[in-house]
């Protein structure tokens, strides 16, 4: 599973780089985007699709900064930082969203284990942050209460 994803990803980036250098901006959308994982309806398959495993180790070295109560689920500020060394990726999920996978940040080179963004949450649920460090996956969760949902109209 892992290997297949690796192959898919390298092929996609290679194609994008090729398109960029040759000046051909063909919309290569489906190739690069991990549709399977983002369309997954439950946390397990979303995790499996994005990081290749559903097993993570709970860690207190991951800090999730998010409001306890979000008045507007359409805009929930979330900041994730980690004291784990050599973090390769940070994945954010919201447990009870229709499609739980929110984003995956692949960190490279000199990047530090820190990302901050704003997410949509359908209803009160846990925000799960997964950090990849040294080939292992660590996770932390925090509950955010949502008073107005952010999905749908």
């Amino acid at each position: 599973m892992q290997r297949r994803h690796f192959l898919k990803n390298t092929m996609a980036t290679g194609a994008v780089a090729l398109a960029a250098t040759s000046g051909l901006l063909v919309p290569l959308k489906v190739l690069a985007w991990n549709k399977e994982a983002f369309d997954a309806k439950d946390v397990q398959s979303a995790m499996k699709g994005s990081i290749g495993t559903e097993l993570t180790e709970a860690s207190d070295k991951i800090t999730i900064k998010a409001p306890d109560i979000a008045e507007n689920g359409a805009v929930v500020p979330v900041t994730i930082s980690s004291a784990l060394g050599d973090v390769k990726s940070i994945t954010i999920l919201s447990e009870k969203n229709g499609t739980p996978l929110i984003a995956k940040f692949n960190l490279k080179g000199k990047a530090e284990a820190f990302v901050s963004t704003r997410i949509k949450m359908g209803k009160t649920s846990n925000v799960i942050a997964i950090c990849e460090s040294g080939g292992k996956f660590y996770s932390a969760r925090k509950e955010v209460k949502v008073t107005i949902g952010g999905c749908g109209g």
Binding site: I102, F105, N106, K108, F114
Partner: peptide, 27 residues
């Protein structure tokens, strides 16, 4: 960062509209 990739993000529909993004690296 100086021509070398430091971060690439894969986003889904659950990122808020007019996205805000912040991150850090050594530089």
């Amino acid at each position: 960062h100086n021509g070398a990739p430091v971060m690439n993000a894969e986003w889904g529909v659950a990122i808020s509209k007019n996205p805000y993004l912040s991150f850090k690296f050594a530089g």
